[in-house]
């Protein structure tokens, strides 16, 4: 049995969509461990005195529907009054001890797949400023609502997942670094292969970067070497540190499984999934971007 808790503040204007993102985001932690989610409890903070209660109903309906899609039963929850909306879930899932996916465990030569584009933090910052085009908001919302249900997709396949984590608040670089912590491995990442939301780069260059991205950059940049030429890296490096909400999975598999896994992901609607790099030997445990 595995358990997890996750809670976020609104990142979308549509309450029903926001509820779905909360559920997808919270449930993702269970999938990341290679387990199947079954039960959840809501945790909510809502300003009952200043916002109509219908908004709360819509948020909860979004959470309920997304949980149902994942086969999760919401057993109840707890609500408090607060000035800012917060919504999260405590999720319980099950798996077998021998098949748990862990953050570490990749070996030299394994490849790294990212299942969703990055840039949700930057786009939602621009959204707060009223500067994000609707089309982009919709594509980011669709991605955040999408369940990271890789364990379900792999039920009938014999692909061994060597290591797995999800890209969330610490951004792509910090989460990728966590996969090589104490492994004497490095990651060689191909800038061109990193999927990025349309317009996210433009919005980053316009200054719509959340504070978390700078904190992530400060922490992780000593371990990140950018050797890509401007021709190969067509985006602002801050995107590598952008905090993600309901971001994709970072999955390590053996090279000979990579194409099949990519195919499975694409068929399941992860259209941006991409092999973004590979694990190499490196005493200093760094990420090299080429």
């Amino acid at each position: 049995m595995v358990q997890t808790v996750d809670m976020i503040t609104p990142i979308l204007d549509d309450p029903y969509d926001f509820g779905q993102v909360v559920a997808a985001n919270a449930i993702s932690d269970i999938y990341t461990m290679g387990c199947l989610p079954e039960l959840a409890l809501n945790i909510i903070a809502f300003p009952c005195s200043s916002l109509p209660i219908e908004i709360l109903s819509l948020i909860l309906a979004g959470g309920q529907d997304k949980a149902a899609e994942a086969g999760v039963l919401i057993g109840g929850g707890h609500t408090i009054e607060d000035v800012e909306i917060k919504y999260g879930m405590v999720v319980t899932g099950f798996g077998t001890k021998d098949n748990l996916w862990r953050v570490g465990g990749a070996k030299e030569g394994d490849v790294l797949i990212l299942t969703k584009p990055i840039g949700t933090g930057i786009v939602s910052t621009a959204l707060k400023a009223g500067e994000a085009p609707l089309e982009i908001i919709n594509s980011v919302a669709d991605s955040m609502k999408k369940l990271n249900n890789l364990p379900v997709l792999l039920k009938n396949h014999r692909i061994k997942i060597k290591a797995c984590t999800d890209v969330t608040g610490f951004g792509l670089m910090v989460h990728a670094l966590s996969m090589i912590n104490k492994s004497k491995l490095g990651i060689k990442m191909i800038a061109r292969e990193i999927p990025i939301f349309k317009k996210a780069n433009e919005l980053a260059l316009s200054g719509f970067v959340p504070g978390g991205a700078y904190r992530n950059e400060k922490w992780a940049s000593p371990k990140v070497i950018i050797n890509a030429t401007p021709d190969n890296m067509l985006f602002d490096p801050i995107l590598l540190y952008d905090p993600q909400t309901s971001g994709g999975l970072l999955v390590a598999v053996e090279q000979n499984n990579a194409e099949l896994l990519l195919l499975i992901l694409k068929e399941a609607g992860f259209s941006a999934a991409s092999i973004i790099g590979s694990f190499v030997s490196d005493e200093d445990e760094r990420i090299e971007i080429i």
């Binding site: 980053a204 260059l205 316009s206 200054g207 719509f208 970067v209 504070g211 700078y214 602002d236 801050i238």
Partner: peptide
């Protein structure tokens, strides 16, 4: 009064 605002304004301005 904060680093995020500074970084973002510099990012915007550098263009």
């Amino acid at each position: 009064d904060n680093e995020t605002a500074l970084n973002n304004i510099l990012r915007f301005a550098s263009m």
